Computed example of a mutant assay.
Amino acid sequence: MRRFLRDNGLSVTLFALFLVSLIGQALTGWRAHVEELRLHELPATGFLEYLTSGHFISAVFENWESEFLQMAAYVLLTVFLFQKGSSESKKPDEDNPEDETPENRRNDPNAPWPVHRGGLLLKLYSHSLSLVLVALFVLSFWLHLTGSTRRANEEALQHHQPMKTMAEMLTEPEFWYESFQNWQSEFLSIGVLLVLGIYLRERGSPESKPVAAPHAETGH
Results as ranks from 00 to 15, higher is better:
153 N>C: 05
39 L>R: 15
120 L>C: 09
97 P>K: 01
188 L>N: 07
125 Y>S: 00
104 N>R: 14
218 T>F: 09
210 P>S: 07
20 V>R: 03
25 Q>V: 14
113 W>R: 02
162 P>K: 07
128 S>N: 00
166 M>E: 14
199 Y>I: 12
186 E>I: 10
161 Q>V: 06
99 D>A: 13
10 L>A: 15
101 T>S: 14
115 V>Y: 02
134 V>N: 05
52 T>W: 01
202 E>D: 10
91 K>N: 14
77 L>Y: 08
14 L>G: 02
96 N>M: 07
181 Q>N: 11
47 F>W: 01
173 P>K: 02
121 L>Y: 01
18 F>L: 15
105 R>W: 07
19 L>G: 08
60 V>R: 00
8 N>I: 03
51 L>Q: 02
172 E>R: 05
141 F>K: 10
8 N>R: 05
89 S>K: 02
204 G>M: 10
27 L>S: 14
4 F>M: 05
45 T>R: 03
58 S>T: 01
84 K>D: 11
138 V>K: 10
48 L>A: 04
3 R>I: 13
186 E>V: 12
28 T>A: 04
12 V>Q: 06
45 T>M: 04
130 S>G: 12
31 R>M: 12
27 L>E: 08
217 E>D: 11
104 N>V: 06
97 P>R: 01
128 S>D: 00
104 N>T: 12
100 E>Q: 12
130 S>V: 15
163 M>I: 10
